[in-house]
Every structure is written in C-alpha cells, then in structure tokens.
Amino acid sequence: MVDYIVEYDYDAVHDDELTIRVGEIIRNVKKLQEEGWLEGELNGRRGMFPDNFVKEIKR
C-alpha cells in the first residue's frame, strides 16, 4: 500500500469518509471498486476520500 498527500481540503459527508486537510499524509491507501474514491488511514481512523483531492507520494 502507498501513502498520499492531501492537496485540497475535503469535508466528509458520510460516516465512512475522512475529513482531510491540505498537507496531511494519508497512509496505507488502497483503491476501491467505486470509481473516484480511495481508502486510507488518517489520525487513527480508516475511511474513504476522493482521489482527485490527493497525490501519491512517490518513494
């Protein structure tokens, strides 16, 4: 799994989504079957977030 950095703020709409803020690092990200969404861990919580608000961290 890979990590992503947040490029744009996003406020969660549903309980299974993450609220993300610019500059945060989302860890252990995986792609979901639902197009346009990823799932990852942030601040001890796992949830979904839109893939166009983040950028993969290349290592």
Rank of each mutant, 00 (worst) to 15 (best):
F53Y: 10
V54M: 05
L38C: 09
N52S: 15
F53T: 15
Y4V: 12
V13F: 06
E7R: 11
E41G: 03
R45N: 09
K31F: 02
L18S: 03
M48V: 12
V22L: 05
L32N: 11
G36N: 09
R45Q: 13
V54R: 03
V29T: 05
H14P: 00
E7P: 02
E35T: 09
R45L: 08
R27M: 10
Y8E: 13
F49M: 05
K31M: 13
D16N: 13
K55G: 08
G36Q: 04
R21C: 07
M1V: 10
V29S: 05
F49L: 08
D3G: 05
I5W: 02
V54P: 03
L38M: 14
V13L: 09
E17W: 00
E41K: 01
G40Q: 00
D51N: 15
D16E: 11
V6R: 01
D9L: 00
M1F: 10
R59E: 15
D9Q: 12
K55T: 08
K30V: 09
G23Q: 03
D16G: 12
I26F: 01
F53K: 10
Y4L: 04
D9V: 02
F49I: 09
E17I: 03
Q33E: 13
F53W: 13
Q33V: 06
Y8G: 13
N28P: 01
Y4E: 02
L38I: 05
D16S: 13
I26W: 02
I5Q: 14
M48D: 03
R21G: 01
K30H: 15
G44V: 01
R46M: 12
V6S: 06
L18C: 03
Y4D: 01
A12W: 00
E7M: 11
P50H: 10
N52M: 10
V2R: 11
E56V: 12
D16W: 11
N28C: 08
W37R: 07
I26S: 02
D3I: 04
P50Y: 05
N52R: 14
L42K: 11
P50S: 06
Y8F: 15
I26K: 00
Y10K: 06
I26Q: 02
L18K: 02
I5C: 06
D15S: 11
G23H: 05
I57N: 15
N28Q: 10
V22S: 11
R27H: 15
R59W: 10
T19I: 02
E41L: 04
G23D: 01
W37H: 04
K31W: 06
V13M: 12
V13R: 10
L32I: 08
I57M: 08
Q33I: 06
I25F: 03
V22H: 09
E56F: 03
E7S: 08
K30G: 10
E17R: 03
V13Q: 07
D15Q: 13
E7L: 13
A12R: 05
V6E: 00
P50G: 06
R59Q: 14
I20M: 13
I20E: 00
Y8T: 15
G44K: 01
N52L: 13
E24R: 02
K31L: 08
K58S: 09
V54A: 07
L42I: 14
E24P: 00
F53D: 05
D15K: 11
W37P: 00
Q33C: 09
V2I: 14
E56L: 09
M48K: 15
E7V: 14
Y8C: 15
L32D: 08
N28M: 01
G23L: 00
L18Y: 01
E56Q: 08
G40V: 01
E56P: 15
V6F: 04
V54N: 05
K58C: 11
K58N: 03
K55E: 04
N28D: 14
F53R: 13
N43Q: 07
L42C: 13
G44M: 03
R45Y: 06
K58F: 15
D51M: 10
I25Y: 07
N28W: 01
V2N: 15
N43K: 10
I57C: 08
Y10P: 01
K58V: 06
V6C: 13
M48F: 09
R21M: 02
N43G: 12
E24W: 02
L18F: 01
I5G: 02
V2P: 09
M1E: 07
V22K: 15
V29E: 08
G23A: 00
P50T: 02
G36E: 03
G36T: 03
N43A: 09
M1L: 14
K55V: 09
I5N: 03
G36D: 04
F49S: 02
D15W: 04
Y4C: 09
